[in-house]
Structure formats: structure tokens, C-alpha cells
């Protein structure tokens, strides 16, 4: 039996590897920031992949980016406004409206910011994704993270990353077409509390186009209940056959990044004023709602902007 004192305990160099930030560009495996054996570094790093502690793989992400780029540029023809409001370094919480049966706003925002600014964006979403086989794994490798306050705090505060949340939750994409561009309740304001605790600004983003890319005509609640999904939509896209159910209409995407919202509070407090959180949350909701109405006033065509 291998004795206990076979390896004398030496003060190994401390490396803050858990919290290290993954380099954005596709890293060679040898330079993987993941930690390796520390027994005098006698053991070679056995890791073969680049899946980070969030389940994100830059290699998968690069493939996704490559595959999604034509969609982003040619299909949705995404157009940004105010992109300079997204900080190029430091953590920030991106907050946006959410729409379309299969929401196309999340990949568009992630792809846009990643390609334009060269920063990874972690998309936070309902645990429903994680619990779905295949989809959950791909979603996680492609930068999806379960929306849990601890996860958000770690991303924003400790790793100073960009995280994207949709405070409407599944109520946003789960609304029917006649309610388009009317923001739902912003949850219980948890996103404001997280931003306060993490000491990062909130960047509101208003997205126009996602609603029309996959409009929900009506929903079948019993079917949703049966499969455990938040909603089961019948979309206009389904008129184009079974494949249509998965393909978005080529609505013109316009994204407007609003002024960052900062909170003048001390980070890392155990508790923040509930009323302040609700007020800030409502103010941000109003801001995005106003921006949406403004953008819709200027929009001449759903398909050409």
C-alpha cells in the first residue's frame, strides 16, 4: 500500500485555477488553463478537452459561432446600436427582453457580443435546458449556464464575466403573438439583487425581431404539463411543415444597448432593500419597454427593418 509519507509535502505553487478566466480564443489543449496534477507536476495533465468549469467548451463555441454566423448576418441581419455601452472588461449583467417560441434573441445577443467585442457571454437560462438530454449538453457546451444566483455571482463578481439573463423567464417567449413586445413581469427582481451583490452594472438591451421570428399562435397547456416544459407552443412556423417548427422566420433583428445602470450600494451584502430592488427592477423594465416602443415606431417593415 502506498505509504502516506511517500510524497513529502512541499509548498506547491498556489494557483487560483478554479476561478481563472478561460481565454476567449480557441486555446490549444496544451495551454489549457485547467489545473493539472500537483505532485511535483510529475503527472502530466490528462485532460483531453477544453470544457471549463461552466461546462462551456471554446471549441464547441467556435463551431457554434461558425455555424450561426450566416444566420446572424444573412438571415436575421442583426443590427446593433449602442454597442459601446457593453464594457470591454469587467463583469456586467446583460438584461434583455425575451421572445419567440424558440427564443432566437439569446444566441443572437451572445453571438453578436462575442464576435463584435471578443468577449465570452454566458447565457443564463432555466434549468429546464439542463434537464433535457442532448439539448442540455449542447446548450452547456455552447455557453449556457443554469440561472442560479450563486452561479451568477461567481461569474460576475469573481470572474468578471458577461452574463446574459432574461428576467421575464419563460413568460417572455411563452406569450402569444397578440401580446408581442409587451414585457412581462421581471420576475422578483433577483437580477437586480445579484448585480448589487456582485457590484456590477446592468446593461439593458432591447431586441426587436425575435417576436416575429417564431410567433406563437396558441399554446397547449396540457401537452406542456405532460412533457414538463414551461409551455407547448403552436407557432406560425409550423405551417411550413415539421422542419418549419425549428426554423425561424427571417425577421430583421435590431438590438439597442441602453445606458449601463449602476447601483450605488456596497457589494457583498447579505441583504438589500426589497423596495429598492423592486424599484430598480421596474425602472429597468420601463426603460427596455420604452426603447422597444421607440424602435417599433421607427420600424417600417418586420422583414427589412
Amino acid at each position: 500500500m502506498a505509504g502516506h509519507d511517500e510524497h513529502p509535502r512541499e509548498p506547491a505553487p498556489r494557483r487560483a485555477t478554479t476561478a481563472e478566466i478561460v481565454p476567449f480564443r480557441l486555446p490549444p489543449v496544451a495551454d489549457d488553463p485547467e489545473p493539472e496534477g500537483r505532485r511535483g507536476d510529475a503527472l502530466p495533465d490528462p485532460r483531453t478537452g477544453d470544457v471549463d468549469e461552466w461546462g462551456r467548451s471554446e471549441r464547441v463555441r467556435a463551431i457554434v459561432r461558425k455555424a450561426y454566423d450566416p444566420m446572424y448576418r444573412r438571415w436575421f441581419r442583426a443590427e446593433w446600436e449602442g454597442l459601446e455601452n457593453v464594457p470591454t472588461e469587467g463583469g456586467a449583467l446583460l438584461v434583455s427582453n425575451h421572445a419567440g417560441a424558440i427564443p432566437s434573441d439569446a444566441p443572437t445577443i451572445m453571438h453578436g457580443i462575442e464576435t463584435e467585442l471578443g468577449r465570452p457571454v454566458y447565457g443564463m437560462a432555466d434549468h429546464f435546458f439542463k434537464s433535457t438530454p442532448v439539448v442540455g449538453t449542447l446548450w452547456s457546451r455552447g455557453g449556457g449556464v443554469v440561472a442560479h444566483p450563486d452561479n451568477a455571482y461567481r461569474l460576475l463578481r469573481e470572474q468578471q464575466q458577461l452574463a446574459l439573463v432574461f428576467p421575464e423567464g419563460s413568460k417572455g417567449p411563452g406569450k402569444t403573438y397578440n401580446e408581442r413586445y409587451r414585457l412581462r413581469r421581471f420576475g422578483r427582481g433577483g437580477f437586480v439583487e445579484i448585480a448589487m451583490r456582485a457590484g456590477v452594472p446592468i446593461i439593458p438591451i432591447a431586441v426587436v425581431g425575435a417576436e416575429e421570428s417564431m410567433p406563437i399562435l396558441f399554446k397547449i397547456p396540457s401537452l406542456a404539463k405532460a412533457i414538463g416544459a414551461p409551455y407547448f407552443p403552436i407557432t406560425a412556423n409550423m405551417a411550413f411543415g415539421p422542419l418549419g417548427a425549428l426554423v425561424h422566420f427571417p425577421a430583421k433583428f435590431k438590438l439597442r444597448v441602453l445606458e449601463p445602470v449602476t447601483f450605488d450600494v456596497e457589494p457583498d451584502q447579505p441583504r438589500y432593500s426589497r423596495s429598492r430592488i423592486m424599484d430598480e427592477s421596474e425602472a429597468i423594465r420601463q426603460q427596455i419597454q420604452e426603447a422597444l416602443f421607440d424602435m417599433l415606431r421607427q420600424r417600417r417593415s418586420v422583414w427589412f427593418g
Binding site: 485547467e34 493539472e36 496534477g37 500537483r38 503527472l43 490528462p46
Partner: peptide, 11 residues
């Protein structure tokens, strides 16, 4: 102080 990381332990 840990002597092994997750990957190191597996190695």
C-alpha cells in the same frame, strides 16, 4: 493545501 486537482487525481 491540496496535492491533487480533479484531473490530477484521475491521472
Amino acid at each position: 493545501e491540496y496535492r491533487y486537482t480533479s484531473a490530477g487525481a484521475l491521472a
